[in-house]
Design a protein around this nucleic acid. Structure first.
Lengths: 236, 236
DNA sequence: GATTATTGTCACACAATTGTAATATAAGAT
DNA sequence: ATCTTATATTACAATTGTGTGACAATAATC
């Protein structure tokens, strides 16, 4: 895996820079955002592996952002470390409520910050990132980056892999082409809408390429006319 | 999905135009209104995805409009971004009270405006907390975009889906054809009145297509002669 | 550096959906 | 009963949305 990307959300440029340098030295990539909204956009665009979030963003929106991220299914597994100047127990309690993964109280040492980041990343990657997802005899194993149907390897391109991974971890839900683009390609690239269709086709083709299975796995990728696509075990 | 439509509400033509051009370049459709009243009409007619609302409309009606929109059930989920010249905290507090989704303080850069719009749109479309609506064994699930009767999928077109969704979330109320057209099609399209009837028919047909149910779900869509249609669990 | 795989886009084929008009049926009014 | 008006139903042509194969450009691999 390439270096993890950390999103720094803080309204003070000095702190952003300082943390950015620290992370850089520790071998992370970093992007930063100044406001909760910038952060939200950056998350969609850059798909960071972890968010460092200042508690005290102007307007109290730091905690609000955390809450929103944890509530939304699509971002709920994105680890968040809160940066807080106060050591008050109140904050911690409130934050744990929201579901953030850890705290670092300012001032902090670079070493401590990096250690906590690594700890959280270790925890979260061990938890779900690498766990294989299975639907009937279709299995997607992120750690070995493999798709198998009844133990027969299925060949597909990287994009189709990501697409299938996204679908398999968000079953029974329709996603518009825009949404799929956000999730699979990232929000900052421009794609013709029909491009999604083509990749859907390639994915279906790959899933259907395994012969003599009781189930036609291509059927699981369903078209919802006028709305987008859906991965579902139930018939269309 | 087609481009989102943004409604610009501002009394200054120059600002309306400037924003309009910006949005156009960013791939949005835009319509504009000069007064709160025009805005209200435009909302019904164009069903915009987001409203850019000037705080300082003549007569202080900007904030008033926001309040009204957020209070009315039919428009309460329509995202609103306030445009305000003042950065005073008072405004923000008052506005958050009303429930607007974000603020942009003039002067603002086109980039910022577009970024905020996208962020809000993503938030509002991503956080589809829409719960499934259920009536006996008829279930409409917005997130999976599925209709089922006793777990059997019911097939229908997008328009019928929208129609049923509207009905199911507004049960026991008669709606005139005009009203239905406003809600399901949006007010600016011209339809023959009989067209509604045809879609009602298609909806009934779809609901009735599932065999051997104890209830005939087509019966829930009731004709109220001289008035319109009604979705009701009580017999007609 | 050559070869191969993957990617995004286009053009066209195909299918579902849509709105309307024409006609049939039902419900009130006289 | 008959007339009048409102709604139901059917069929159809136009529109819109999706599927598919081919292609050139780019990236990955050897």
């Amino acid at each position: 895996m390439s270096d993890p990307t950390i999103l720094i959300v803080d309204d003070e440029p000095a702190i952003r820079d300082m943390i950015g340098i620290t992370l850089d030295l520790a071998g992370f990539n970093s992007v930063s955002a100044e406001t909760a909204h910038q952060a939200h956009v950056a998350i969609v665009d850059n798909r960071p592996d972890l968010v460092l979030l200042d508690w005290m963003l102007p307007g109290g929106s730091g905690i609000e952002l955390a809450r929103r991220l944890k509530r939304d299914e699509l971002t709920s597994s994105l680890p968040i470390i809160m940066l807080t100047a106060k050591t008050s127990e109140d904050n911690k309690v409130q934050g744990l409520d929201v579901g953030v993964d850890d705290y670092v109280t300012k001032p902090f040492s670079p070493r401590e910050l990096v250690a906590r980041i690594k700890a959280v990343l270790r925890r979260s990657s061990g938890n779900q990132q690498d766990k294989a997802i299975r639907v009937f005899d279709l299995q997607l194993d992120p750690s070995s980056h493999r798709i198998t149907i009844e133990d027969t390897p299925v060949d597909m391109g990287p994009t189709e892999f990501k697409l299938l991974k996204f679908f398999m971890s968000h079953q029974e839900k329709v996603f518009s082409r825009d949404h799929i683009q956000d999730q699979v390609w990232g929000g900052n690239v421009y794609l013709e809408e029909r491009t999604i269709d083509v990749h859907i086709r390639r994915l279906r083709k790959a899933l259907g390429s395994v012969e003599k299975t009781s189930i036609n796995y291509a059927r699981l990728v369903q078209t919802v006319r006028g709305a987008g696509y859906r991965f579902s075990v139930k018939p269309a």
